[in-house]
Amino acid sequence: MSSRNGRRRVNQHTVVAIVEDKPGVLMRVASLFRRRGFNIESLTVGPTEAQGLSRMTIVVDGESAPVEQVEKQLYKLIDVVKVSDLSNEEMVARELALIKVRCNNLNRHEILDIAQVFRADVVDIATNSLILQVVGDEDKINGLIKMCEPYGIRELARTGRVAMVRGPKTTTVHEEVPESIARIHASQGRRVEGVELPFSSD
């Protein structure tokens, strides 16, 4: 957690890895963590502002993994382009959760009041349940979950943390690759689509 947003969990590290958007890259990263015994608390992946690059935000349990080794081992993967440890940075860390809460005509208002306190949105509503969508740091989400528990949580989905350094500093990569190489990198290992492949078996 950012120190601005409250207490920092000392044994948690937020590591951002910019990786080549290639098949298998998630397996390479996950396999590395498993093999070295580093515990992943959450891992999120998505595209970046640059084509061909994805961003992974990995929350690592620092007890299991000296963060320096995590960074260095990640760097050894050819498909990992840049690794940043955000733990000592001023950062914005956010997570989104969808919470399906049991409700009825009598208590629906109470739940909506609670949602308002947490600035959670109601994104679906039915006679005996509603879905709250909340964005924030983990403490806030945990707080809302705790408040909803007495009513009965039917289902819970959380995204895991995404994070970004505050201020103009970035953790992105600005390195253009020649078009001829980028084209092949984009197709390496990917299934051929839209073409009827010959069927052959030996």
Binding site: M27, S31, R35, I78, Q188, G189
Partner: peptide, 17 residues
């Protein structure tokens, strides 16, 4: 075999074209 050898190669490739 690419999946199998990921942890024991420096890098590996599956070539689709």
């Amino acid at each position: 075999i690419t999946g199998i050898t990921m942890p024991i190669t420096k890098h590996n490739y599956l070539v689709m074209r």
